Amino acid sequence: MTGIAVLGSTNMDLVAYVARAPARGETVTGREFRTVPGGKGANQAVAAARAGGEVVMIGAVGDDVYGAALRAELEHSGVFTDLLHTAEGPSGTAHIVVDDEGGNAIVVIPGANSTMTALGSGETAAIGAADLLLLQLELPLSAVVEGARSARAQGVRTILTPSPVQLLPDELLDCVDLLIPNEHEAAALTGLSEPQAAAAVLLRHVPAVVITLGAKGCLYAARDGAPLHLPAPAVTAVDTTGAGDTFVGTLAVALGEGRPVPEALAWASSAAALCVQKPGASTSMPYRSEIDAA
């Protein structure tokens, strides 16, 4: 079984469903509201665990009712939470508007996540015991860099999702084995809107990159081979929230199992396609049996 450490955020998603998102200064009437466990770190942890990985979550929740619910949801999906610390104050929240086309807009309030500024010996040991480390950018950058350095020093493969997008220091990129931005993040990082051109620039900094393209699939590029474009399964999207995290978590499991890259990408794409057909983030993530059947 693939061992995966996830150093990342845990948020409660507060989701409003509307026919269309409001413009600036505009008020619209929604049709439904839900609270759904989320956060990019927790989402990737749940996706990987449901896909068959042995997953440990490293992060923090608040001492509020959301914190207890977030921990319970992770444990229900089979994620180990001994290194999910409880901090004084509120848990992180994500305020999400989802329109009838499945698109979303998100505002994240870090809350307890902002207390994760450094790692202790337990966190470092958990990273060293894993096959892969998954990182995102919803924790303080100091902890993300420290996690990446720890993984590199211990020979652990590292996958970084550069979201929310920001300038990435060389000390972080030097420790990343696979970078997985979406097409908007890739454009923001490189100034290039064409995915293949953006990938070429990113390969100057990391050995391999996957740019996710939504309904258009994904683009894989590595320094030692030709780019590969994989189309996405044709489905009707209900809610795209969490699709990227589903892709990353599932891909990590497939790569950890030693699957060839094209096969691993196809498996992860199938998982993401299943995710977008249901509302919510972690609640819509498929289990291994569902991915295999798809």
Rank of each mutant, 00 (worst) to 15 (best):
S142F: 09
L179Y: 15
L74V: 14
G92V: 04
A243Y: 01
G128K: 14
E75W: 15
S91H: 00
G39D: 12
A153V: 09
E123N: 10
L135T: 06
R223K: 10
L179H: 13
P110Q: 06
G122I: 05
A294Y: 07
P233F: 11
G147A: 04
R204T: 15
A264Y: 07
I58H: 08
K40G: 03
R259V: 07
L119H: 08
S77R: 05
I127G: 12
G280F: 00
G191E: 09
V201Y: 09
L83E: 02
D99P: 02
G59Q: 06
C175E: 08
D82Y: 04
A72R: 11
M57Q: 12
L189I: 05
E171F: 05
D100H: 08
A294C: 13
V18M: 11
V28A: 10
F247P: 05
G111M: 02
E290Y: 04
A112H: 02
F247V: 02
L14P: 05
P169K: 12
A16D: 10
R157H: 07
L133M: 12
A42E: 10
L74Q: 08
E146C: 02
A200P: 00
S193Q: 15
S270C: 13
D170V: 10
P286H: 05
V261F: 06
A72D: 14
L134T: 05
